[in-house]
Amino acid sequence: MFTGIIETTGEVIDITAEGTNLTFTLKAPIAPELKVDQSLSHNGVCLTVTSVNGETYTVTAVDETLKKTNLGRVKTGDRVNLERCMPANGRFDGHIVQGHVDQTGVVTSIVDQNGSWLFDFQYNPVSDNPAESNITVEKGSICINGVSLTVFNSEPDSFRVTIIPYTYEHTTFRDLKVGDVVNLEFDVVGKYIKKMLGLYR
């Protein structure tokens, strides 16, 4: 389990295709502290560390992960947001993040507010039936590329978030452009409530 509070970013230095899978080699400040079999969030995607070599490490993304996330679009030289799983005695600074991306969304607008940034995102609700669709709620939580954020301007297929200077500088939000694809994990509590209400119907 993760919290959506990014520890650092890592640079992709190599991508190797192995059948339908991709193995990523990344360089990151936390690499020397990692262990093989450890869970690590990459842009919000939980992947298992398969090897560690000094300041670099490797993870593999399977075909299903590549289809449902933006990892298949990552190129050598790109930065990704990194978060290790939450320690049992740690503070819960973000929200419950599983590292299981629900779908991708697209950046539709970036507005510099001279002290913060407004980012608008659009996504396909997946289903015309609200009980089966991914949804946001006003002032609710959303995880974007692994970052825990608060939603406003919540619509059936779009929402907005505000990015403060610290988050902008210490995550890949400063790299995003209009049209870029991002990973979205919707609030797990909301997903369970939505599922239960759908069953009662």
Rank of each mutant, 00 (worst) to 15 (best):
T50P: 03
D128W: 00
I6K: 02
Y123N: 07
L176Y: 13
G146M: 02
G94K: 04
R201E: 10
F173T: 06
G19Q: 08
E33H: 00
K67E: 13
V147M: 09
K177C: 10
G44R: 03
I13C: 11
G146H: 01
T65S: 15
N43P: 02
T25I: 09
I6S: 01
F121S: 11
V45C: 15
V151I: 14
N89Q: 12
V62T: 11
T69A: 04
P29R: 02
C143K: 06
T58I: 06
V189I: 15
N70A: 14
K68H: 12
L197F: 13
P130F: 09
I110W: 00
T172G: 07
E55H: 08
N70M: 12
W117G: 06
E169F: 07
V137T: 12
L26S: 05
V74K: 05
P29E: 01
G19L: 08
Q103F: 00
G90Y: 00
V52P: 03
F121K: 10
T25N: 06
E155P: 04
Y168W: 15
E169R: 11
F152G: 05
A61I: 05
V52M: 04
K67A: 13
N124C: 13
I135M: 13
L149V: 08
E155C: 12
V182W: 03
G4T: 04
N43G: 05
I144G: 08
T69K: 04
K67M: 09
S133F: 07
N53E: 14
E64K: 11
L149C: 08
G146C: 02
I163Y: 04
V106N: 07
F24L: 12
V151W: 01
V80W: 02
